[in-house]
Design a protein around this nucleic acid. Sequence first.
DNA 1: GATGAATGAGTGTTCATTCAT
DNA 2: AATGAATGAACACTCATTCAT
Lengths: 219, 219, 219, 219
Amino acid sequence: MSPRRAAGLPDGDVSLRDHLITAAARLIAERGTAGLTVRDIARAAGVAYGGLYNHFADKEELLALALHAHVRAVEHDLGAPPTDGTLAENLRAFVRHALAVHTAILPAFAGLVGNPDVLARFDALPNPLAGGRGLHTALVDYLEVERERGAVRRDADLDAVATLLIGACHDLVLPRMYRGVRAPVEVPADRVAALVATVLDGITGPARGGPPGRRTRSR
Amino acid sequence: MSPRRAAGLPDGDVSLRDHLITAAARLIAERGTAGLTVRDIARAAGVAYGGLYNHFADKEELLALALHAHVRAVEHDLGAPPTDGTLAENLRAFVRHALAVHTAILPAFAGLVGNPDVLARFDALPNPLAGGRGLHTALVDYLEVERERGAVRRDADLDAVATLLIGACHDLVLPRMYRGVRAPVEVPADRVAALVATVLDGITGPARGGPPGRRTRSR
Amino acid sequence: MSPRRAAGLPDGDVSLRDHLITAAARLIAERGTAGLTVRDIARAAGVAYGGLYNHFADKEELLALALHAHVRAVEHDLGAPPTDGTLAENLRAFVRHALAVHTAILPAFAGLVGNPDVLARFDALPNPLAGGRGLHTALVDYLEVERERGAVRRDADLDAVATLLIGACHDLVLPRMYRGVRAPVEVPADRVAALVATVLDGITGPARGGPPGRRTRSR
Amino acid sequence: MSPRRAAGLPDGDVSLRDHLITAAARLIAERGTAGLTVRDIARAAGVAYGGLYNHFADKEELLALALHAHVRAVEHDLGAPPTDGTLAENLRAFVRHALAVHTAILPAFAGLVGNPDVLARFDALPNPLAGGRGLHTALVDYLEVERERGAVRRDADLDAVATLLIGACHDLVLPRMYRGVRAPVEVPADRVAALVATVLDGITGPARGGPPGRRTRSR
DNA sequence: GATGAATGAGTGTTCATTCAT
DNA sequence: AATGAATGAACACTCATTCAT
C-alpha cells in the first residue's frame, strides 16, 4: 500500500515536491513573486494547498526553491551566449543575453525585497546562473580568455567591465519593471553596440577605429 | 477657530499631512516600502490612523508622496557630487554618490513592484533627483560640458556612459538589497576607480596613462 | 458681538438648525436615507459637520427631523388630490396621489429599518401627511362625505377601503424601490381604474355598470 | 481524507455552507438584514468568519441565499392557506397568511434598500413564495378557479384584487416594522373580514348580503 | 457658535497555516 | 501522504463623534 498520489501529479517519476517547485517557478515566470499565494501555486499545480506543508517548512522555503528553479529554467531556455565571434560581437551578444536574463529574473527578486527569509534561503543554494558561476564570473572568465589572446589590454580590469556591462542591463530593465511591464526589453541594437564600444574604446584619447558610437542622445 | 491638533504632532508649524509624509519617508528609509501598513505609518507619526484619510485619498497617495520626500531627503543629505576636480575625480565622486543614492532608494522602489499605482503617482510628481533631472540626465549633462572642454572624445556616446556607470551602481547595490542589508555600501575606492578608468580608457588598444586599474579579481 | 455665522448659511433669518434639516431633507429626497452620512449632509449644507452637534443630539435626531421635513415637502409639492369629480374620478386621483407620495417617501423610510431610533423620534413628531391626519385618515374622511351624500353604501367599511387602496399603492411601489429605481412610478391609467372599480363594485354578484375593469392579466 | 469539521457545526449531515445560510437566515428572522455583519453571522453559526469566504463569493451572496432560505422557511412554517372553504373564507385565510408572510419578510427586504446587489442576486434565484409563483400570482390563480366556478364575476379584474389584498397586508405591516416591532401582527378578525368583504361586495350600489362589514372606524 | 482635523471601533475581505478526516 | 475546510490575525478604509482652536 503506497500512500495516495496527489491529484494533479503528472505521470512518471515526479515527486509532489518537485511538481510544486516547477509549478511555482512557472507562476514566478508569468507573474513575478509579488502577490503570489500558496493557493495560487497549489492551484497551478493542480494539487491541494495543505499538502504543501508536508514538503516544505513554509511558503518561503518553496519560494526560494522555485526561484532557483526559475533562474535555472531561464538560463536553460536562453542558452549560453556565443563566444565565436569577434570580441565586440561576443560582448554584444552577452549584453543581449544579460538583458533577457534580467528581464526574466528581476521581477522575481524584486517581489521578495522585504522578505529576507526567501532571499537568504535562495543564497544558501548554489548560484544557478552560468553553470553555478553567475553571469558576472562567466563574463570575467570569457574576458580572461580574450586577454590571453591579446584582444584585451593586460591592464584592463575585467571585473569592472563585468560590473559595467551587467549593471547597464539592470539599468535598462529596472524602469520597465517598475511600470509592471513584463514583455521582453527591446533595446535597439545601436544602444547595445554603444555600451560595448564604450567599454572597449573608452571615451578619452584620440578617436578609435570601428564604427563610432552614436552621439549623445538626451534621454 | 482652528481644529484640534493631532496628538503626535511635533511643535512648530507642521501640518499633520507633512508630518505623516515625513514619518512615512522615515519608515521607508528604515525598512523600505515592503510590508508598510497605514497603521505602521500612523504609529510612527504618533497619530490615529483614520486621520490619514483626511489628508490623502488612500495609502497609495501617501506612499507616493513619502517616496518622493524620501528621495529628496536622500539627495539633500548627500548633496550634489563635486564637479571641480579632474574628469576622473569627478566621475569617481559621481559613482560614490550614485552608490549612496541607490543604497538608500532601491529598497523603497523594489518594495513597490506589483504596486504600479504608487509608482504611477510617483512618476506624476517631478523627478526629485539632481534638481529634477534625474541622475542619468545629470551625468550626461556633466559629460557634455567635459566634451565641450575637449576632455571627452567627440564621438563618445555619453548616454551609454551614463547607463554603464549608473548601472554599475545598481549591480553593486542590488545583491546587498536582496540580503536585506541596509547599511551603506562599502565599495573599495579602487573598485570605483576601476569602473571609471575602464569607461575612460576602454580595455583595448595600447596601454593608457594614469594609474592602471587593478588586475582581474574573481568575485 | 453675535456668534459667528455658519459659512453655507443662506441670507435671511434662517437658523443653521433649519438649514441643516432642509439640506438633509433634500438629500433624502434625492438618495433616500440609506448610506447617508453626516459629512454628506454637512457638505450639502455647505457647513462644517462638527457644528451639527451643536444643534442636534446626534445624527438620528437630525434624520428624524429631516424625514419629517421631507414628508412635508412632498405633501406640499404634490398638493391635495382633487375632490370635485365623481367618486370614481376622485378615488383614481387619490390613488395616483398616494402612488406619488409613496414613491417619494418609501425610500426614505426603508433606509431606516433597523434604526428604530430615528423612526421612534419621527413618530413623536405630528404625522405630517394630509395636514397631520395622514393619507389614511384623509381618505376615510373624504369617503365619509361621500357616504353622507349617498354615493357610498351605509354599511361600507371605509377604513377597509383606505387600507386596500393605500396598500395597493405600497404594493405597486415597493418592488421598484427594492431595485433602487427612484423615478416616479408609471402605473397605467387602466390599472388605477381597475383598483378603484374593484373597490367600488366588488367582484361578486351581477355585473355592474361603468366600464368593466380589465380582465385578469397575469403579472 | 475529508477536511476538518467546523467547530460550531451541528451533528449530522450538514455542510458549513448550509449551516451558515441557516444561521444567517435565523439572524434575518430575528433582526432583519439591516446592520448584519459577517462576524455576526459567523458568531451565530459558532464558526470563524474567514471561512465564510470558502463557501460564498462575498457577503452579498450569502445574504441573498439566506434571504431565500428565510423566505422558504417562513413559507414552510406557515403552510399554504386553505382553499376548501367558501370564497370569503378562503380569501380571509389568504389575507391572514399574507399578513404573517409580510411580517416575517418585510424587515428582511427593507434592510436591503440601497444594497441592490443582494436583491439582484435574490431575484436570480427562483421566487420561493407559493411554490415559486409568488403570493400575487398564487392569489390570481386561485381567483381564476373561482371565476371558472362562477363565484366571481366574469369582468372582475383579478390582478387588481390581488394588488388590493396583498397591498392591504403591506399597509398593515409596514407601520409596525417602522417601529421595530417584530412580533406577529395581531389584526382583529373583523378587520380582515372587512377587507375581504369590501373587495367581494364593493362599496356602492344596494346593500349586499353577508354579515355587514363594520362601520368606519377612525384609525 | 463654528470649524474640521483627530479619533478609533467597526467593516468586508485575504491568506498563511493547521489539522480532522 | 493528501485533502481542503476552518482559523483568525491582518489589512485598507469608513464614519459618527469629540474637542482644541
